[in-house]
Design a protein around this nucleic acid. Structure first.
Lengths: 140, 140, 140, 140
DNA sequence: GTGGTCTAGACCACC
DNA sequence: GTGGTCTAGACCACG
């Protein structure tokens, strides 16, 4: 579980952890049912307080990404979004908008932006497929 | 000046302003000597307290990105070399990746994701064109 | 606003504050619409961290006892319980049970226990009435 | 041994056990040399982990209230002078006051409050009688 | 000045 | 060993 923190970005550390674990799940580095790193060791590895990781895991659980069993650990849940289609689209639009604004600021044209979006989508898709090939016993 | 704030991201608002102005400067969207929007109107446009914008400008000045001339306003200083194209593409890829990960978690398919990206890009493009008609010298 | 804390009781400080403010409201020491002590001064007076008071006030707001306006302060809400009658009775039963168990442990007989309950109820009723007489302008 | 736990009070469970045993001893409900319930059955009865009861007994022993004879069990030590009647009434008044305050917040009238107090007292009395039939030597 | 959030350290309950 | 809670200090946004 590789997590890279940026302490001077102003982004709360616990949110960085949340995003990177969601990324790990999306890219196939984590598999459904697999246990996440325990709070204490992960906190030591990242040099942050245990509460910071605990808060990240609590946020992930409230988002339905993981399941936490007190005294047992935290596990990646099946990837089923509990939201209705329109709501999901709205949530996604936020992330897309952030990328669009970034494209504006960086003066990247529409054609290049869309090509990049497709490329990155394929990259994650490919990562997930490869990762599933390696650990077929862990999937449902 | 196009600035998009995310109040739920956990990133301090004043830092979001700082980052986006630095990005606009770095990408060449803002030019040396060009005046930045005044605090009061920008605060009203972004629906935040004037203190917050003032704090962002103070931070930018302390970083040497802008200079404040009392009674005249804030202006972009020199020494802001625009990023190279590959660097810009790398910065944009981060935002795109975040959207791709979100799409995976929300179980949105590639086709729909790319369609949404194009739609949102067009929406912002339209906004930009409309705002240029009104104040051609001040907008991105 | 007289609040007495017991740091060695094992009862969380923020819950002691919650209970005593509810008591102040019940006994008439606080009136509807009246502002509660601000977080910072109260924390200094009680020699605890501001977050401890903030947590108590957040709990009181979630219970519907007070209303908090960021930047303005916290105010005692009208005393209307949002729960249905059976739920309210259940909540009250918990507090009554605690008293009954205490009576058992202290070997106080039923007759004496009920007499004490009536006495204490009257005492609080009387306090509330007297307090309302003093500050009639603050009531709704 | 009648022990009532409140898992939502925020008071550590092991301290609730400590307090109620000390109270039972102080009020004369427990007598010098009398054996306390064994850890395992008491833990099962209260639906808590055995560690929690063990911790409570360890605390009681360190306070000199009980003494543990390895392999025999835990016994109440001497020096536990029962409280005087007025003290006991004062201790009980605290619990009664908490219930009265709760009644005010839940808008329960005096008549209904006193009826509830009587009902709950009778419920516990009945529990006590039933449990005395089974184990007359061990119950309160 | 107001309330709210993020990070941290210590302790609790459970396995 | 596991996760969860309470208290604290520093910083943020707002008036």
């Amino acid at each position: 579980m590789l997590i890279q923190l940026n302490f001077k970005s102003g982004v709360p550390v616990y949110l960085q952890v949340v995003d990177q674990i969601k990324l790990a799940a999306a890219s196939g580095a984590l598999h459904v049912g697999e246990p996440l790193p325990s709070i204490r060791p992960l906190a030591e590895q990242l040099r942050v307080n245990r509460n910071t990781i605990a808060k990240a895991y609590a946020e992930l659980e409230s988002q339905g990404v993981i399941e936490t069993l007190a005294g047992k650990g935290c596990f990646l849940k099946e990837n089923c979004s509990p939201y209705r289609k329109e709501i999901r689209r709205g949530l996604l639009a936020e992330a897309v908008d952030a990328a669009v604004v970034q494209a504006h600021h960086l003066q990247v044209a529409k054609r290049e932006f869309l090509q990049l979006a497709e490329d990155r989508f394929d990259v994650f898709e490919q990562k997930r497929i490869e990762s599933e090939k390696k650990k077929p016993s862990c999937d449902l």
